[in-house]
Amino acid sequence: MADLSIIDVSKSFSGRHVLENLSLSVSDAEFVSIVGPSGSGKSTLFHLIGGLLEPDSGDIYLDGKRVNGKRGAISYMPQSPSLLPWRTVLENVMLGGELLGEKNREEAISMMAKAGLSGYEEAYPDQLSGGMKQRAAFIRSMLSPQPLMCLDEPFSALDEFTRLDMQQWLLSMWEEHRRSILFVTHNIEEALFLSDRIIVLSSGPAQVKADFTIPFPRPRKESVVLSQDFLEWKKTIYQELRVMT
């Protein structure tokens, strides 16, 4: 179970409003993407959910519990893989659980195998390619016991081919495990291909501009990207983003 509700949250830094009365929600086993121009306060939003910052007003609820300023309530995957270089890959993927005192070695090993990382348990992160590092980072957040996963532009540093691979891989992992995911991206196609819902943010101060439910059936095939519907959706969202600038 994971239900995230953000209700009327505002945040400003030295007089500059970054978020104003922002409300959004992620229900259980839902994949929600947030797209918005850069500087639209997406990372501030994540810092609020992660508890690094406290909202000036408004509330954040996770499964009915208020988590304003409370750290460790979500599992997180950052833009850079952020694996600890002195730990083996296996020790790295168990880190999320370890921080909360719940280490599960067997589960970690089997999850690594599913991600195509078996044989790399005792390797160090330096020995992995960019895509493999991101997969390890994703497994690390999958193995964290928190029910909601927040992914912060996880594929933006990868090259185009690796990125497409990773999107498909992420989708297959997600369809198997069905965790709630809040996904931040710049990339409209990526959001369309992956999500159940897409939330478009406006910038300065950030507010929910539009909230689209994406009707493509699951499990999703790669071919959906080339369909007429997909293109129409892309146009709609693109225009939504264009109006702002």
Partner: peptide, 13 residues
């Protein structure tokens, strides 16, 4: 700073 940020978000004290 990247690793520090990750650990903080993941709830490390």
């Amino acid at each position: 700073p990247d690793l520090l940020h990750y650990l903080k978000m993941a709830g490390a004290d």
